[in-house]
């Protein structure tokens, strides 16, 4: 297994990518990772590196990019947009197709990374052969955005300062950006996120979808929203399988040591 760090220039932007491959095994899938948002990416970076290594060992080629304004890529978070992220992610998909011997594409989308499938819809060139793996997908971005804004209101409240969600909403509506846990959220990005969803229509035409929910309690069951999403995919004649897996909620928890169940389920999904 070899990891090559590289900058890939797409749409005039230099994006840092960790490129994992195995020179000894002909690749079956070329896997493009859709990373999660803001602080969740930091908490997931270790497990995403681990899963990329393991997938490369079993014969996948994996590209783990930092989107514009995140990680080691060019740009500032406040200048990023979901539209731009979608275009760049699709361009990375094209780059990987040109530079890989793997016959089939796969997408490993983590949390809000799943929404990139909706933003990049129509730009992914080999979608009919794609296998999609969704980790605890965010299906409705409005609720996710509210939880993100809450990081600020709740930490202020815990520190004894009073700031309400309606004050933050008003600032964003007036075109001002808001800093949340070290990330400067622009008014335009908040406006883009509010109506963003992932539904069956966005995935129509792909080959297979595997949806994984992670709960740390024993014998977990899927949430009603995710079960309904799996049903809606099946109604669209997409081969979709959903599973609830006993595993730590690694995107929200600090210092997760070994989310082994998530790793093994993902290796099985891309075997």
């Amino acid at each position: 297994m070899v990891m090559t760090p590289r900058f890939v220039k797409v749409n005039g932007r230099r994006l840092f990518c960790a490129h994992f491959h195995n020179p000894r095994v002909p690749p079956r899938f070329r896997v493009l990772i859709a990373p999660p948002f803001a602080e969740e990416l930091n908490k997931c970076r270790r497990i995403l590196t681990l899963v990329s290594q393991r997938l490369a060992e079993q014969g996948c080629e994996v590209l783990f990019p930092d989107l514009f304004g995140t990680g080691d890529s060019a740009g500032d978070f406040r200048d990023a947009s979901w539209k731009g992220w979608g275009e760049d992610w699709a361009a990375l998909d094209e780059w990987l197709m040109q530079n890989s011997a793997a016959p089939r594409p796969a997408y490993l989308c983590v949390r809000s990374g799943a929404l990139l499938l909706s933003v990049a819809r129509g730009l992914l060139n080999d979608f009919g052969r794609a296998r999609i793996v969704l980790w605890q997908p965010v299906l409705e971005c409005e609720r996710f955005l509210r939880a993100f804004l809450r990081l600020r209101t709740v930490s202020d409240r815990l520190a004894g300062r009073a700031e309400s969600m309606s004050e933050l909403d008003a600032r964003l509506r007036s075109g001002q950006s808001v800093e949340i846990a070290g990330y400067e959220l622009s008014a335009s990005m908040a406006a883009e996120m509010t109506p963003l969803t992932l539904d069956a229509a966005h995935l129509a035409g792909c080959a297979e979808v595997r949806i994984m929910e992670f709960r740390s309690s024993p014998n977990p069951v899927m949430t009603p929203a995710t079960s309904e999403f799996v049903d809606s995919l099946q109604r669209e004649h997409i081969e979709a399988i959903g599973a609830a897996i006993e595993c730590e909620q690694f995107w929200a928890t600090r210092d997760v040591v070994a989310p082994g169940a998530a790793l093994s389920a993902t290796m099985l999904a891309l075997a």
Partner: peptide, 9 residues
């Protein structure tokens, strides 16, 4: 140590 604002949310 796990109890930060992300955990609270």
């Amino acid at each position: 140590p796990e109890f930060d604002s992300m955990a609270a949310v």
